[in-house]
Amino acid sequence: MHLRELFDRSFKAARIGVWECSLPDQTLSWTNTVYEFFDLIPQTPLARDEIVELYTPESRKLLNEAREKAIRTGEGFTLDAQIVTAKGNSRWIRITACVEFANGSAERIFGVKQDVTAEKTMVEQLRRLADRDILTGLMSRTRFEAFFNEICGGECQRTRSLLLVDLDGFKSVNDTLGHQAGDDCLKVAGRRLSQAVPDADMIARIGGDEFAVIHPCSSAEDLAQIATYIVEGMNWMISTPTKNIQITTSVGAAVIVPGQTPKDIFATADNALYEVKSAGRNGFRIVSLSRPALEIAHGTLHNEGNSFSSRIF
C-alpha cells in the first residue's frame, strides 16, 4: 500500500497519468491526473468521441493514424499532441501507447499521458531566441544563413537581391560614448532599416554593426532604388552634450541568381560593400551580373553595365 501511494504521488508530481481504452467498445478509463490535463472533474463519464474533439485538428489526425496503425500491427507509439481543454486552455500531452491482444485481436490500448506543455514552451522560446537577434529584434545570422541557403538552392520563383549594410561611424559611438550608447545605436539602426525596406523578405543582423537584407527586385534600377532607401533612411545624428556623431550607411548589393553558390553571391555583395567603404562610405554599390545571368534570374532584369554605384550626401 505504501509503495502504491509513493507510485501515485511520483506520477502526479511528474505530471503523468495512466489511461486505457478497451476495444472494440471504446470505453475510456483514466487516472485522476489525466482528468486534470483535460480540465475535467475526476471520475466524470468519458465519451471517446467527445475527448478526441478536444485535440487540435492536426494532432487529432496524427493521433488517429498512430492509433489505427498500433491496433493493426500491435506496435506501440509515442506522440506529442496538442489539446484545447474543456476550459479552453492549450496544453501539450505526450502520449505513450501499448496494445494488448487476445485470441489474435486487439483487446485494449493503454499507456501513459504526460503534460509536456512547459517543455514545449521552453523549446519554442529557445527556437525564437535562436531565430532572433536579442538586441535589435531582427533575424539572427543563423536564421539568415538558413533562409539564404534555401532560396539560393531552390527554384527561382521571383528575383531576389542580397544587400549587405554596414554602419559608418559606429566605432566612434562605442569608443567615445560607451557600449550602452553603441547598443542603443544598433537598436535605432534596426528600426530604421525595417522602416526603409518594409517589403523585404528578411532583415537580419549578421555581425556587430553589419546587417543583411534579402529583398525582391524587378530590375537593376529597382535594386538601386532599394539601396537608396536604405542609405537615406539610415542617416542620422547622435547628439550628446559633449559630442555629435553622424551615422551614415554603406551598402553592397548583388542579385541572387540560380546556379551561383550562396558563398559566391555573399562574396560579390561583400566586395561591393568594401568598395563603397574604400570610396568614402555613405553610399551604395551594386554589382550587376552579365546579361545571360540576369536573364536566368528574371526576364525583366536588364542592365548593360557590370556595376554602378552612388554616393549620397
Rank of each mutant, 00 (worst) to 15 (best):
I286C: 09
I256Y: 05
T240P: 06
I95T: 13
I286G: 10
K69N: 11
T85Y: 06
D8F: 04
N244H: 11
R67M: 10
D270H: 09
V18D: 08
Q195D: 12
S59D: 06
D115F: 02
N103T: 10
R128S: 14
P262N: 03
S310K: 14
P258M: 14
S140D: 06
L62P: 00
L163V: 03
F266N: 03
Q157W: 04
L223Q: 00
I256L: 11
R141C: 08
V84F: 08
F77K: 11
R9D: 06
H2T: 10
N103V: 08
M139E: 11
P57R: 04
L301Q: 12
D183M: 03
S278V: 03
Q114T: 08
N306R: 15
I265E: 05
K113D: 15
T96S: 14
T142F: 07
N271P: 02
D264H: 13
A97C: 10
I286D: 09
G252M: 07
R311F: 08
T249M: 06
K120T: 07
F37A: 08
A70N: 11
G252H: 08
G208F: 07
R48C: 09
Q180M: 11
A212W: 01
K69F: 04
G208R: 04
R127D: 14
R311W: 07
T56V: 05
I71N: 02
G182P: 04
K171D: 10
P241I: 02
K243A: 10
I226R: 04
E155M: 14
N306M: 11
F7A: 14
V231W: 00
G283Y: 00
P198F: 02
R311S: 13
G154Q: 07
R143C: 05
M1F: 00
A66R: 06
G299H: 13
N174R: 12
A196T: 00
T27E: 15
L6A: 13
A13W: 10
E100Q: 12
R281P: 01
E75N: 14
R132D: 10
A189M: 12
K263Q: 15
L177S: 02
M122G: 05
I296F: 06
V231T: 07
A102E: 14
L79T: 08
L162R: 01
I93W: 02
R67G: 01
F266C: 02
F211T: 00
S161N: 02
I203T: 02
E221K: 11
A204F: 01
Q26S: 07
P198R: 06
A102Y: 05
S310P: 01
Y229S: 10
P262M: 02
I203C: 01
A267H: 06
L273A: 08
R158I: 05
T31Q: 11
D209A: 05
A97D: 09
A146N: 15
R94F: 00
A14M: 13
